[in-house]
């Protein structure tokens, strides 16, 4: 495992911790898209089926379990916690995420490394993760103001994707057999989706101002 991959995993973990902190400390999930969180839970559940079939390392297994447990906990809180669920911006979270599910599934049926149950679901999880942030970005854009923790959450999530690209570039040169086209192309698409957000994030950081997205 190279440093980019490790830092990518860590920023991913930090983003989830920031989201948990926001929900726990403020008992509020305002600005957070339940649809994006549900898609992430599905991404982890379908991708990490290999927990039952392949052992890679203790690190891998622990991280997978943490991602599954934390994503399910976030969805549960947003749906069921009496205080948290009242703060959910349901009227702003209107992205038609079923289209993302359907498109990702059809693409996985067409493009996969091997036509097998687990491999098709793996490809599905890769495609779905690439677009799962869209409901969140749309919600932020519609609400305009982004609170500090929500802004940091999306920033670290984007940083995780960018670091994974450096990880692939590194692997490509170190290991010439490394060809993960599905993951790499989807990862590029996924990172590109953050470009707009990053732009406004850095402007607000440079001006030391509150993060605001144009309507």
């Amino acid at each position: 495992m190279n440093i980019f991959r490790f830092l990518g995993d860590m920023t991913h973990l930090i983003s989830i911790l920031i989201l948990l902190l926001k929900i726990y400390a403020t008992k509020s999930c305002s600005g957070i898209s339940l649809k994006t969180q549900e898609l992430y839970a599905l991404v982890f559940l379908t991708r990490y089926l290999d927990l039952f079939t392949d052992f890679i390392s203790v690190y891998n297994t622990v991280m997978k379990l943490v991602f599954i447990a934390s994503s399910l906990a976030i969805v549960w809180c947003m749906r069921n916690h009496p205080l948290v669920r009242r703060s959910y911006d349901k009227q702003l979270d209107t992205f038609r995420h079923y289209f993302l599910l359907l498109a990702s599934f059809l693409l996985a049926l067409l493009l996969h490394e091997k036509f097998a149950f687990q491999e098709v679901l793996w490809a599905f999880s890769i495609y779905l993760e690439a677009v799962a942030i869209l409901p969140q970005l749309v919600l932020l854009q519609r609400s305009g103001n982004v609170d500090n923790l929500t802004g940091q959450y999306v920033f670290f999530l984007g940083a995780y994707r960018a670091l994974y690209i450096f990880n692939w570039i590194y692997r490509y040169f170190i290991d010439p057999h490394f060809t993960r086209w599905i993951a790499c192309v989807s990862g590029l698409v996924q990172t590109a989706l953050y470009a707009d957000f990053f732009y406004y994030y850095f402007i607000s950081w440079k001006n030391n101002a509150k993060l605001q997205l144009p309507a």
Partner: peptide, 10 residues
């Protein structure tokens, strides 16, 4: 085509 290896990334 080589067999896909295990998915070692998260």
């Amino acid at each position: 085509n080589p067999e896909p290896e295990v998915h070692d990334e998260l």
